[in-house]
Computed example of a mutant assay.
Amino acid sequence: MLGRLGGRLGIALLKFLAILPYGFVARLGDGLGWLLYQIPSRRRRIVHINLKLCFPEWSDEKREDIAQKHFRHAIRSYVERSVQWFGSLKKLEKLVQVDSEVDLTDPDMPPTLLLGFHFVGIEAGSVFINRALRRQCGALYQPMKNQELDEIAKQARGRFGADMASRADSARVVLRWLKERKPVMLGADMDYGVRNSTFVPFFGIPTCTLTAVGRFAKVGHAQVLPFIGEVLPNYKGYRLKVFKPWDNYPSGDDDIDARRMNAFLEEQIPRIVEQYYWVHKRFKTRPEGEPSFY
């Protein structure tokens, strides 16, 4: 009962925030993130562990600065889902800059996997890329525990023409979408356990990494278009950055293909290091016999 009530109140708040000016909502989220960072928490600890693992050369002062900036971005991203889920199309078109190295409206686009990465702007990028494609696409999502909230989130994420499917149904559904030449959006840079994963380096650390992208690309004869949703400075909105398709991918070797994804991230993260999703336990699953980092 309390879970359903909390979910409804949360959605009502997001819908209310969606009608307010974006700059106000963004600053509200930023301030809330700053406030919550002052309170010792498990998530703050995870951020520091991740940054220390990936950037051991940093000073304590720099790590503290980036950790706080990231925490502010992370909390702000949840508040800004109000705009991303419920803001008008006109509002979103003013807020999202599309910077694509390919023609997203090309009617002859081959079977395509749109590979999103977990920067704090991924929600804005994932919602708006449906609009930028000007055609129906498919998208995988991780279901939420609250069923009512999950249904609303699914509708909001697919409101510009995305067909949504749970990760649990991914293999069968993705291959059908690719056969229909429907672009498919998915994210693979999180730790989902050892099933369908391999351990390859990420910032020099053996990291449990999904192999699904290479396998889907191989079986579906699909190109892979990486994209990143970036938060612009000074509360100006977002940039949807779409890169050229990866050459010579897939290679046919799961480890090489998984490493390709992590290497791409290692190139992109330093540009906007405070925006990568450091609050996630990216190194949760360890090779057999290794102790937990967390």
Rank of each mutant, 00 (worst) to 15 (best):
G116S: 11
N146I: 09
Q84L: 15
K284D: 01
E267R: 15
G23T: 13
R159Q: 09
G125T: 04
V273D: 04
N196V: 09
H73N: 15
G161Q: 03
K236E: 14
G138P: 01
G10N: 13
E266A: 09
W85S: 05
P201I: 04
Q38C: 02
I75C: 09
P206W: 01
N196F: 13
Y78D: 03
L175E: 14
K154V: 06
D255C: 10
G125C: 04
D65L: 08
F202N: 03
G237E: 02
L225W: 03
G193N: 09
C208M: 03
Q155Y: 10
A18E: 05
Y192E: 14
D30F: 08
F86R: 10
L20K: 02
F264M: 10
F55W: 13
F243V: 08
M109I: 02
R260N: 13
D255I: 08
N234I: 02
G29K: 12
H118Q: 08
G33F: 10
A162Y: 00
A222H: 10
L232M: 11
P201G: 06
L92S: 05
L240H: 04
T198V: 15
G161M: 01
A258S: 14
T209F: 04
L89F: 08
V273G: 03
G6Y: 05
L36K: 04
Q84D: 12
R260G: 06
R271A: 12
M261A: 09
Q84F: 09
A18C: 10
F243T: 07
Q275Y: 04
H280N: 13
K69L: 06
Q223E: 15
R195Y: 13
Y294S: 03
Q68Y: 00
R260K: 15
V127G: 01
I205G: 02
L14H: 07
E123G: 02
I75N: 00
Y37C: 01
F71D: 00
F283V: 00
G125D: 01
V200K: 11
R271W: 12
W34T: 09
V231L: 08
V83L: 14
P201C: 05
P21L: 06
R215I: 11
K52H: 12
